[in-house]
Design a protein around this nucleic acid. Structure first.
Length: 861
RNA sequence: GCCCCCUUGGCGGAAUUGGUAGACGCACACGACUUAAAAUCGUGAGCCCAAAAGGCGUGCCGGUUCGAGUCCGGCAGGGGGCACCA
């Protein structure tokens, strides 16, 4: 029998789906909708296995929902702005726009080879003016609504990419793309006011019950809500106040110093007349922000000589230091130090010989016997040495202290967030221009909406470092829209996360020209019912999009709090790594395995060391090209392997053996259909019984496959399909082929037809091309893509007899078959009669017998 | 340092949520077909024991329970997130 010809078949069905426009989404308010979305790709030039995994998972869901009668929106687009295009332009002398559009064309073809149910008529590319003009208008609306502003601030500067990075884009003190240690620079930047929604974004996490806990926790930590008090310390001999934030107002009587950040305005002022302090501040700024540096950095301070007055005691003065561990960006940039109950404060106090007074002591401890050594006490206890707070617990002390501060007018209870506003200015060319004009007379002037889009000039050069837009001879020179005088365009562009923060809404009506999307379209399609992507965006894209949805709602674009109703984060695709004797990484395509399991390089026979299994990366050369895989095994085999191997949220290891096994199953399924067509269901005593059993298997498989897909247990769904096909194969193997002319058993023939139809429909979303081919082979005129999902008959999910386990003292000794729902007495009697149980009881009498109906009998002796 | 997750055969992983541990697959071994190989089909397999009987088994120690992979406490190992956050 000929092998299944995937090359011909996959091309054929892809063509038919395209010709029939099978996957076009049309709004129809009479139908329930399902918006299935996978994170759109950056057009780097080639798709990778991570894309195949992502889009295969989404496609499985989209196909199942379609079969279940949902009106499905499953679009695709391109996150097309970004630095790689500029790097390519610099290296290959090709314009970013040309490079990007070529990559999009290449990758679109690669994606189509996977056989996805994408509505390509909705494709968008974020680098096109008809996309980004809408976000320019949106930005102006954000500005008008107080959600965008410009401010000079310390920023993270990536010295390799020559641009500013958002806090979310700095990982361990290094740029998220370049890995270069970020520098601190003070620049004027545009910010989006994400902090305005800090509390809403935090609170609404509770409503996102179809999101992974991991992502919700990460966002919660990132937002970093803390409650405490802000208090005022008057400075002695100076008509000035110092504002301090603390989460522990209860420990105020344990204070022994104040410390301000090196970036605090007061520090700068004092440094003007104090060279020693100026030098200390300069040293602080030099200290890097990387983990290693911070870990090693000593707590250091510089005594300013100033004294601050304790808010609860006008006669109590505390020294004021500038300290290297106080951050200007958090709280007020100033702290009070309570060494007994904070480790950093303790380290600092020991170094500068400051008092350490415990004011919280563990329950049952005498305050006068309690001392703090090298470790600060941060646990619960009773307040002591704290005047009016004495005896209260920590929480009570906080409340009482805040009450006192408020009545004295020296402070108030407050909430502080770790979340910073989102800096969106980037000093790059290949991004969306920020639609602002700097006028020497009028200041910051928004580009009038009628003049949008502000488009990128095409005649730019990349031979000088820095931003090509500011180098351009003419582009930035414009007349001020307000006064008509000479003015300059903003030459910064938006962070590319700006584009990806609203593309899911654009997909709802991608062709409207005068607005980003229509109200009707978004109110029908949004929120996205199922979003799928990598966990690396947990606090980047996923947080920005949530903010954007709220911001767009505030500006009247939408009426929606959350963009993504269901979120799923997929695991990565990994592969073994290979190294040649000279230490060079070797790609999987260049190696071969010998008889004895030895691995050598194909080109020169050099022995290869097999290394750890790691995320596929160009650096380690452990990548596998999806197009090569699809060329060798077909898209269906690749899809099946991805779905079957590992639970989707975990990292999967890509192996040749794995995809080879999937390919063999594709063939086996195809042969099964061919065999089915040649056999005849013969009659006999067992025919009806076999028919019944087969139908039970199929309906159980339907039930489990459906629930497994809904629960993202794709590997289980595949296993269920295999169980069903194995069962069908077993039955077919017992039947004669047609030319033996035996009379047919109608019951078995009917059951086989039903069960084979179920099998093909269950397998279709996993292996769609094979699915269509099998469906056609069964004689159907309609496409499988237009057929409905099988529904399990509940009466076939339970059988009439059950096998119960029988234990003696909790250890399995026998199993007994009983009619379903036998009563306890029957089960007990049957169990005690079983010879194995009699033997295991060794003549003893049962002290107790536990019967769980249809499950287990446990005899206790 | 803080927070979160994970640990089941040679491997990926199942287990109706406290009730027959190892579904389904990969790799392996043996057999059939073949001149031979590939492909295909069949059989086997957690570990110990020659086998049966039996015993032991879900990272380790303890607990709850008639019964624990599942619940509780402690420990070890691995992974992830945040991090001088007051």
């Amino acid at each position: 029998m000929a092998r299944y010809n995937f090359r011909e078949t996959e091309a054929k069905w892809q063509k038919i789906w395209a010709e029939r426009d099978s996957f076009r989404a049309v709004e129809d308010t009479s139908k329930r909708k399902a918006y299935v979305l996978e994170m759109f790709p950056y057009p780097s030039g080639r798709i990778h296995m991570g894309h195949v995994k992502n889009y295969t998972m989404g496609d499985l869901i989209a196909r199942v929902r379609r079969a279940q009668g949902y009106n499905v929106l499953h679009p695709m687009g391109w996150d097309a702005f970004g630095l790689p295009a500029e790097n390519a332009a610099f290296q290959n002398k090709v314009h970013p726009a040309v490079w990007t559009r070529q990559n999009i064309d290449d990758m679109r073809e690669q994606l189509k080879a996977i056989g996805l149910t994408i509505d390509w008529s909705r494709e968008v590319a974020t680098c096109e003016p008809d996309y980004y003009k809408h976000e320019q208008a949106m930005f102006l609306d954000f500005l008008a609504n107080g959600l965008a502003y410009r401010r000079e601030s310390w920023v993270n500067w990536d010295p390799v990419d020559n641009t500013v990075l958002a806090n979310e884009q700095v990982i361990d003190g290094c740029g998220w793309r370049t890995g270069a240690p970020v520098e601190r620079r003070k620049l004027s930047q545009w910010f989006l006011k994400i902090t305005e929604y800090a509390d809403e974004l935090l609170e609404a996490l509770k409503t996102l019950d179809r999101w992974p806990d991991k992502v919700r926790t990460m966002q919660e930590n990132w937002i970093g809500k803390s409650t405490g008090a802000q208090l005022t310390f008057p400075l002695a001999n100076r008509n000035d106040l110092l504002e301090v934030y603390t989460t522990r107002p209860d420990t105020l009587f344990g204070a022994s110093f104040l410390a301000i950040s090196a970036d605090h305005p007061l520090a700068a002022e004092l440094a003007a007349n104090n060279p020693g302090l100026a030098e200390f501040i300069a040293e602080c700024r030099q200290t890097g922000t990387s983990e290693a540096v911070i870990e090693a950095a000593e707590k250091r301070g510089f005594d300013t000589g100033l004294k601050a007055v304790h808010p609860f005691d006008p006669n109590w003065q505390l020294p004021v230091y500038v300290a290297n561990f106080v951050l200007m960006e958090y709280g007020t940039g100033a702290i009070f130090g309570c060494p007994a109950h904070d480790q950093r404060d303790l380290d600092f106090a020991r170094k500068y010989r400051l008092p350490v007074t415990p004011v919280v002591v563990p329950a049952g401890t005498d305050p006068n016997d309690f001392a703090v050594g090298d470790e600060a006490y941060t646990g619960p206890g009773a307040l002591a040495h704290s005047r009016f707070l004495d005896g209260l617990d920590v929480e009570g002390g906080k409340k009482r202290a805040i009450q006192e501060l408020e009545s004295l007018g020296r402070g108030f209870g407050t909430t502080v967030y770790r979340l910073r506003d989102w800096g969106v200015s980037r000093q790059r060319y290949w991004g969306c221009p920020i639609p602002i004009i700097h006028c020497p007379a009028c200041g910051l002037v928004p580009v009038p909406k009628a003049d949008l889009p502000v488009t990128l000039p095409m005649d730019v050069t990349f031979d000088t470092p820095g931003n090509p837009l500011s180098h351009h001879p003419t582009w930035k020179h414009v007349a001020c829209p307000t006064c008509g005088g000479k003015a300059e365009r903003e030459t910064d562009t938006f962070d590319t996360f700006f584009e990806s923060s609203w593309y899911f809404a654009r997909f709802c009506s991608p062709h409207v020209a005068d607005k980003p999307f229509t109200r009707e379209a978004v109110s029908y399609w949004l929120p996205v019912d199922q979003y799928i992507g990598g966990v690396e965006h947990a606090v980047l894209h996923l947080l920005y999009s949530r903010f954007f949805t709220r911001a767009m709602s505030k500006c009247g674009y939408l009426d929606l709090p959350e963009p993504f109703d269901g979120m799923f984060t997929q695991g990565m695709v990994t592969h073994e790594t290979y190294r040649a004797p000279d230490g060079e990484w070797v790609s999987p395509a260049e190696i071969q395995r010998g008889e004895g399991g030895g691995v050598t390089r194909v080109s020169d026979g050099a022995p290869i060391t097999v290394g750890r299994i790691e995320k596929m990366s160009k650096a380690k050369k452990n990548t596998v090209d999806p197009s090569a895989i699809i060329g060798t095994y077909g898209a269906d085999a690749a899809r099946l392997f991805i779905l079957s191997d590992t639970p989707p949220e975990r990292d999967m290891e890509w192996t040749e053996a794995g995809v080879d096994g999937a390919w063999r199953y594709v063939n086996r399924l195809w042969r099964l259909i061919e065999d089915y067509k040649t056999v005849v269901a013969k009659d006999g005593a067992s025919g009806a019984e076999k028919a019944e059993e087969l139908r039970r298997t199929a309906h159980r498989a339907t039930d489990k496959t459906t629930s497994s897909i809904d629960a993202f247990a794709h590997n289980i769904a595949v296993a269920e399909v295999r169980i069903l096909s194995n069962a069908i194969g077993d039955v077919i193997a017992t039947l004669p082929i047609e030319n033996e002319t035996r009379p047919a058993d109608p019951a078995l023939a009917e059951a086989l037809a039903e069960v084979v139809s179920i099998l093909v429909r269950l397998a279709g979303p996993m292996m769609p091309h094979l699915g269509e081919e099998m469906w056609q082979a069964l004689g159907h005129d309609r496409l499988l893509a237009e057929e409905s999902w099988p529904v399990a008959d509940p009466t076939l999910l339970v059988s009439n007899s059950v096998t119960m386990a029988v234990q003696v003292n909790g250890k399995l000794k026998a199993t007994i078959d009983l009619p379903r729902d036998s009563d306890q007495a029957t089960a007990e009697a049957a169990a005690l009669k079983d010879p194995k149980i009699v033997a295991a009881m060794a003549g003893k009498t049962a002290r107790k017998v536990i019967v769980v109906p249809n499950r287990i009998v446990n005899v206790v002796v």
